[in-house]
Amino acid sequence: MSASDHGRWSDELAAYALGALERDEADAFERHLAGCERCREELRWLQPAVQTLPESVERTEPPPQLRESLMAAVRAEARQARERTEPAAPRRSRGWLLKPAAGLAVVALLVAGAVGYEVGKDGAGNGGGTTVERQVGGIDVKMVQEGNSGTLQLAGVPQLPPDKVLEAWVEREGKVEAVPALFVPDRHGKAEARIADMSDVSTVMVTEEPRGGSDQPTGEPIVAMAVPQ
């Protein structure tokens, strides 16, 4: 890296620090940065100015259910991780929730495993019917619960490869169980699964599985939704 080269790049520095360079420009700048101590030093100097920007934002209190649903998701994953590493634990699919779901077309489009949690009373007034509704990574998820059973309704599901199906799972008292429900989205991206027994279910999940379904989830869930107890 020559010194004259540096002059051209030092103009990019602030834009880079603000995340305002295009991907390829940022890559090129980083290559220069690797060999230019002056730029690195200037960047170190400017960085705190960028870091002060998010701190200057007006405070807005997050809703309490955000913390609840986040911790529910985290505890579920921690439990899975523990069970995987404890040799005495019952056999369970390796990598559930944590394995990168490479090559799964649906998963690639989504924020894998984002968990929704929002409660509203069913407007139809079906005596205790509860509807939980949420957008998870582009999929509209609706869980309609009536008594002991429920229906999981998805909209906006990307089309599956022909050799894949969707499979629903529930987490009950810390254990993931298959719901005997394999389903595929229709051509409008809608899909529905009936869950006969919702008792003690904390989370409902959907994964993409090979045709015929799996006994244990083989990839990350495309939908995971905490269910109010």
Binding site: A15, L46, A49, T52
Partner: peptide, 15 residues
């Protein structure tokens, strides 16, 4: 880019 630079420099200077 120049304004970005000036602005950040100014914030940094105040800090």
């Amino acid at each position: 880019k120049g304004r970005m630079r000036l602005g950040l420099e100014k914030i940094r200077g105040e800090m």
